[in-house]
Computed example of a mutant assay.
Amino acid sequence: MYLGNKLTVKKLGILISCFLYFQLEISAQDIQFSQFYANVLYLNPAFAGSAHQTRVIGHQRLQWPRLDAKYITSSFSIDHFFTKTKSGLGLMVLRDVQGSNIISSTEISMQYSYELILTSKLAFRAGAQGTYASRYVNYSYLKFPDQYTVDGFTGQSTQEPFGHNTVSYFDVSVGGILYSDKFWAGVSVYHMNTPNQSFYGDASNLPVKTTFMGGYRFDLSPKNDRSRVQDDEVTLTPTFNYKAQGKSDQLDLGLYGIYHHLMLGMWYRGIPVKHYNKGLQNNESIVCLIGWKIRGLRLGYSYDFTVSKLSLGRTGGSHEINITYIFSKPPKKKKPIKKIPCPDFK
């Protein structure tokens, strides 16, 4: 089997092994989710408590399933809003496995947010996050070029030096969101303390990640339909999510629509006008979303169609599944609390 008539499967395996090895020594990049607004506590700590009720989110991403270097990321989060103090609290647990269990990481994060009403139509939320992270590497799964000959893999011991198997660190992040009943715009800054994540003891600091996000919701429901309830909404919402970390940056740009219970969306990921090297555009994927919502339950599935040169490797794209449940409260006579007009599949 060949890729581009030159790259055999054996050579591809060597390249992947080298890539994973050097990844242990350089500054890694954060995980990115296609359904970024569905996994809101990962997107911005200011979203903690944004549903103004108790919310539980389960999220999983499977990236490049046809390659040995596939990534499997699972997260679980729960958050709640406290009306008297206008504060939100959130807890998020994230587990990431890279390269067929070669490298894995576990993160436990706590978020706090505070809501400030600026005017009758404008509000602001500020949030902070503390994270304990632990990374693990299994060197026995790695294969290096000095273990190969013209006859293939020899199985002999490599001369490459190994470091520690585990490394742990504490991480600090902040975020803020400005919003009305039609639009929202926010920024989040992760890894403000640039923690050292090296397995070798040398400095390999996790670079600061800055994210800008926003959107505007168009209500397409009949204006005279006063009997309409939340599950009968018809809306169209363009959104963007720009991420910059170290030398890398990407833009998610697209829109999603809600028609009663059905949700459909499409995004483009990349910056086509930017070239990292000659002939190498910043194109990553096209993301398609389908979902269903009924009362407090949200279900979403998305698939990433790879459009970069990585598609030559037949990666299998990426799959994401999101399950969100918002616990309802008994109706009250007093004025309802203002809510962030974020995508309704959150």
Rank of each mutant, 00 (worst) to 15 (best):
V150R: 14
G246P: 01
L251P: 06
R55K: 12
H275P: 00
E233K: 08
M192P: 04
D225M: 09
P272S: 09
D146K: 11
F327A: 07
P65T: 10
Q245K: 02
L15Y: 12
A203G: 04
F76N: 02
K329Y: 04
K329C: 03
S285N: 13
A38D: 00
G257T: 13
G265A: 01
E233G: 02
P45R: 06
A28M: 08
V187H: 01
H261A: 07
T239E: 14
R226Y: 09
E25H: 01
P207Q: 11
H191V: 03
S77G: 15
S157T: 13
K333W: 02
R135T: 03
F22R: 11
P330S: 05
T131I: 08
W184Q: 04
V172K: 01
S308C: 03
N205T: 08
L262H: 02
I326L: 07
Y200V: 02
F81T: 04
S50M: 14
Y112I: 11
F19R: 13
G155A: 10
L41P: 05
Y37H: 14
S157Y: 09
F327G: 06
I14N: 08
A128G: 11
Y2A: 02
G313W: 02
A185M: 10
G279K: 12
L220W: 06
L3R: 11
L255H: 00
H319N: 13
S180D: 06
H191T: 08
C18T: 06
P330I: 05
D249K: 04
F76S: 07
L310P: 00
Q111I: 01
L94W: 04
F218K: 05
N196T: 07
V287P: 00
N5L: 08
L299H: 01
Q281R: 13
I286W: 08
S50R: 05
G313R: 06
G214D: 14
L15C: 02
G127S: 03
K333P: 00
F153V: 09
F36N: 12
H261W: 08
S308K: 02
S140H: 13
H164I: 00
N193A: 07
V97N: 13
Q23R: 09
Y114H: 13
Y112G: 09
D252C: 06
H319R: 14
P45Y: 06
S318H: 02
G186E: 10
I117V: 10
P330G: 00
P207N: 10
S134H: 10
